[in-house]
Design a protein around this nucleic acid. Structure first.
Length: 492
DNA sequence: AAGCCTTTGAAGAGG
DNA sequence: CCTCTTCAAAGGCTT
């Protein structure tokens, strides 16, 4: 695969790798898809959203707007400007300008909302703060915040309904939540699997501005473990566990806006607890020390698995421990957890001794990084929860990205691989193959042949074969047009 | 409980 | 070199 020339310069090296197509049908489909998907989306939107909504939502980075050939002053530019301006007003420069001018995931809270009297935090901003920094006391869970939400959604389009995902790329999270609230969809679906303290950030060191962390983050305490953490190595991947202090020092220009996954790309398995909100409730300091002492070879892989910072690399996953990360653990008292872990540890001790090598996961590729970042947003926008469907949407959006936008992720992935190589010099992807994994069953071979029909890939084939213009030639399932198609693929 | 589904990309295996 | 396969994430669904 082509690699970005890691060198500075631009993402020119990414040109060759931007969009690769596997076969003609696919290519044909993709091309037509790229050209029509947005149109389809627009159709669906327009049929569902009234004009005022549309206008309101038009302040977005919608895919259609993202790539207008003559790009004088795009919407994003405007929104970015307004964002910067608002950020300056609000935080005196806390929020820096985006490192990626074309950053596609700007979700602008309505900073000019009428609900921002006297310069106080707007409800939208409160929502974001709550989402991103739940430790902040921003009317957390209070009636006030709910009222704020309620107020903010007052103009929500109650008429908008749909079993499938409505793609409103530029829609702010809050507005999307408004949609869902108005659609009687379970309350605010803010990204549950987003760790609010580990926003997706770039590798660029320039974002690691040494400064005083926010008061609530003072002391660089791991939100998961509750224990202090050593300073971050400047080279460490931002996808690796970040101390909240670091995060606090990371004024990712859009960090509070970006819908990120809370987990690092390599989910830290501190004590095996892997929860969307791994706060001190999940693992406290004593728990951490217990785990450290009780699971030395579990959690402390060979020397190379510890980054020079002393932070275990998140790519290291010990399957047994991961099993223990059941969400059901939440709510158990510490002694119960300790006992359970102890017993499980006893049970798996022998097995662990056999396989001393921890499972080092593959570094994430560009698309995986993109998915990781955008999944929460798509989930929030959709009523869909099934990852297969979500991934389809993400795949489309991936192709809809501009080269610059994709290049960002290719670059991130490249650095991810570099760091991975440095951390695990002897590691090979082969190590993770099922054949080399003890106790791990080999996945079923997916022998999908191109000619196969009647499978879930059929819609693709019809679309690729006949194109969107000749949908009358499509088979039944294939007529389920995007984005309905996605829901069609989801077995109800 | 384990595996599937679904996406893209990286990397290994094999011809 | 080319093609095929596996795995990385995710979580609901299926077996």
């Amino acid at each position: 695969m082509p690699q970005l020339n890691g060198g500075g310069g631009d993402d020119l090296g990414a040109n060759d790798e931007m969009i690769s197509f596997k076969d003609e049908g696919e290519q044909e489909e993709k091309i037509s898809e790229n050209l029509s998907a947005e149109r389809d989306l627009a159709d669906v939107k327009s049929s569902l959203v009234n004009e005022s909504e549309t206008n309101q939502n038009s302040s977005s980075d919608s895919e259609a707007e993202r790539r207008p050939p003559p790009r004088s002053e795009t919407f994003r530019d405007k929104t970015r400007e307004s964002l910067e301006e608002a950020a300056k007003r609000q935080d005196g420069g806390l929020f820096k300008s985006p490192p990626y001018p074309g950053y596609p995931f700007i979700m602008i809270p309505d900073l000019t909302s009428p609900y921002l009297p006297n310069g106080s935090l707007s409800p939208t901003a409160r929502t974001y703060l709550q989402m991103k920094w739940p430790l902040l006391d921003v009317n957390h869970g209070s009636l006030q915040s709910r009222q704020a939400l309620k107020d903010a959604r007052s103009p929500s389009p109650a008429h908008i309904v749909g079993p499938f995902c409505l793609e409103f790329p530029g829609q702010s999270d809050l507005s999307l939540h408004q949609f869902q609230l108005s659609n009687k969809v379970p309350v605010v679906q803010h990204p549950h699997h987003v760790h609010p303290l580990t926003p997706l950030i770039t590798y660029s060191n320039e974002h690691f501005t040494p400064g005083n962390p926010p008061p609530h983050l003072q002391g660089d305490v791991d939100p998961k473990t509750g224990i202090p953490r050593p300073p971050q190595h400047p080279d460490i991947s931002p996808y690796y566990p970040l101390s909240p202090g670091s995060v606090g020092q990371l004024p990712h220009p859009l960090g509070w806006l970006v819908p990120q996954q809370g987990q690092p790309v390599y989910p830290i398995t501190t004590g095996g607890f892997r929860h969307p909100y791994p706060t001190a409730l999940t693992v406290n300091a004593s728990m951490q020390s217990f785990l450290s002492s009780r699971f030395p070879h579990h959690m402390v892989p060979p020397h190379h698995s510890l980054h020079q910072t002393g932070i275990p690399h998140p790519a290291i996953v010990t399957p047994n421990v991961k099993q223990e990360s059941s969400h059901s653990d939440i709510g158990l008292n510490s002694s119960t957890i300790l006992y359970t872990l102890h017993r499980k540890h006893q049970d798996s001790k022998k097995e662990d001794e056999k396989k001393k090598q921890p499972h080092i996961k593959k570094p994430l590729n560009a698309f995986m990084l993109y998915m990781k970042e955008m999944r929460a947003k798509v989930v929030a926008e959709c009523t869909l929860k099934e990852s297969a469907a979500i991934n389809q949407i993400l795949g489309r959006r991936w192709h809809a990205l501009t080269r610059e936008e994709q290049a960002k992720y290719y670059e991130l992935a490249r650095k991810e691989r570099q760091l991975h190589m440095q951390l695990y010099p002897g590691w090979s992807a082969r190590d993770n193959y099922a054949g080399n994994q003890q106790g791990k069953k080999k996945k079923r071979k997916r022998d999908k042949q191109p000619g196969e029909g009647n499978d879930l890939s059929a819609p693709k084939k019809c679309r690729a074969r006949f194109g969107l213009d000749q949908q009358n030639n499509w088979c039944g399932p294939c007529r389920c047009k995007y984005p309905k198609e996605v829901s069609c693929l989801v077995r109800a």
